[in-house]
Amino acid sequence: MERTNSRLQELIELYLQQSITEADKIELWGYVDDPVFEAEIKNSLSEAFYQVAPVELTALQQEQALNHIFQADNPVITSQEPQRQPKLKRLWTRIGVAATIAVVLGLGLYLYQQKTELSLADQVARSGIKTGGNKAFLTLANNKRIVLSESQSGIKLQDNKLSYSNGTSLSGINSADVGQEYTLSTPKGGTYQLVLPDGSKVWLNASSSIRFPAVFNGNRSVELSGEGYFEVAKDEKHSFVVNSRSQSVEVLGTHFNIQNYQNETTAKTTLLEGKVKVSLADNGLTRVLKPGEQAGVTGKQLKVYHVDIEDVVAWKEGYFNFNNETIAQIMAQLAMWYDVKIDFVDPPSEETFTGQISRTKSLAEVLDIIAKAKPVKFKIKGRTIEVSH
């Protein structure tokens, strides 16, 4: 086959892409051994080197690096061994080319790794991780499941009719679907609002659900799993009860927050205004809360604490509010909102972090903020965040 510059360039590109066959590699070394193509080879490899060389290298430094690689093309040959010069020339040319290719490939791989390690935004984009938002499902009495609109923020139940908060009808519901109770559920990374038949308002945090009747007959009662914030409509004649795994919370008219996830050992009820009574299902132990107090239920124990209300309801206002939170506590919240898994490569540090971050920010932005504040590193693989020191 006739040797041409275009064919040489094609072979070099195949080599740099690491897709060259053994036959093509033999052909490439034939070009390398041919002095006619020495200048063309150097020019092609120099261009490839400049394309992947780190920006930290100046033009002079890049030139010096190439000269160092190619200087073997001019070995010192003594007059006593003139007959070996052609052979040595070909050998050193081949070594010089191989060294340059190795540097080009090595720098390319290094820069690619640096890019993936340093650019959290690129990692998040490749993983397809989205910021949480309005996401929920409504399960009807006949177990029919309806995906609710993400462009809406909530639904309401009035006169036994379901609609979005702005009055728009829910699609997919007909007269045969109307039943005695419904369940509103949010996935990880989802939040939604609900107006109950009596006008009480509920905000559901991520990975939560509430079961509620189509009509309140007498006392008002709902079942909660996960976390919800309640603004209960006042009705002195009919109490309002929230049943939630091992406890019940009874109110007349008040604002309060309940956090009671299945994977957490302690259920927390926090009162913002009014008065509530927290009761344990197992032993009937009760405590009446005052505004600013939180009841913590662990097993058969019930304890009351004074807490910062702003920290408790930050999620409802669209914020992460970290107040002396450890990295493990922080990552648990991020896992819930961004629907990711957490893998601690090193034992999690007990250092604490305090700050407020909007939940509308991307995962990359939140991780960057944390990494700048604390000695912690993040790497994203799929939907898993690896955390290390």
Rank of each mutant, 00 (worst) to 15 (best):
H389G: 12
K277M: 11
T270L: 08
E293Y: 07
A371K: 15
F240I: 14
G226E: 11
A373G: 13
Q158E: 06
S388K: 12
V242L: 05
Q262N: 12
D282L: 08
Q356L: 12
I26P: 07
G274H: 04
Q9N: 03
N143T: 14
Y110C: 01
A102D: 00
D159T: 04
V147F: 04
Q301E: 10
E40F: 00
Y112I: 00
P348G: 13
Y182W: 10
V288I: 15
F70K: 13
L107R: 00
L204P: 12
N5A: 08
L107I: 06
L91N: 01
T360E: 14
N219A: 15
N43R: 07
R359M: 09
D282N: 14
G226V: 06
S388M: 10
P35T: 06
K316I: 02
Q152D: 02
A141H: 02
A98C: 07
I26W: 03
F322K: 14
L138R: 09
N142F: 01
V345Y: 12
L88Y: 11
A176G: 06
V202A: 04
L194A: 08
A53I: 09
Q333G: 10
Q193G: 01
T131Q: 04
G189E: 05
K290E: 07
L272K: 13
F378E: 02
V251W: 05
V288F: 12
T360M: 09
E40G: 01
V232I: 15
K303S: 15
I26S: 10
N143Y: 10
H389N: 15
D235I: 01
L162R: 00
F216E: 06
E22D: 14
V36S: 14
E117I: 02
Y31I: 15
K237T: 11
D73P: 04
T183S: 03
L138A: 12
A295S: 14
M336I: 00
A373S: 15
F256P: 02
V55D: 02
D34W: 11
G30L: 08
T266K: 06
D34G: 02
Q259N: 15
V297C: 08
S362V: 03
P187I: 04
I327D: 10
H255C: 14
V103N: 00
V366N: 06
N323H: 10
G154K: 00
N134P: 07
I12P: 04
E386M: 09
G284F: 07
W29S: 04
V124M: 03
P375K: 09
I69G: 01
K87N: 04
V276G: 06
F230A: 13
I210A: 06
E22L: 15
L88T: 01
Q193D: 02
D73A: 05
Q64H: 07
G172S: 05
T139Q: 06
L140P: 11
S221F: 14
F240Y: 13
N142W: 00
L88V: 02
L272F: 14
P187V: 03
S19D: 13
K300M: 12
A206D: 05
N323G: 02
Q9C: 05
E22H: 07
K377C: 03
G96I: 03
F378I: 05
E22S: 12
T100R: 00
N134M: 05
E273I: 12
A328W: 10
F49E: 07
I95Y: 01
W203K: 03
L148G: 05
D159G: 02
N260L: 04
V178Y: 00
L60C: 03
D368S: 15
L16T: 01
A72F: 00
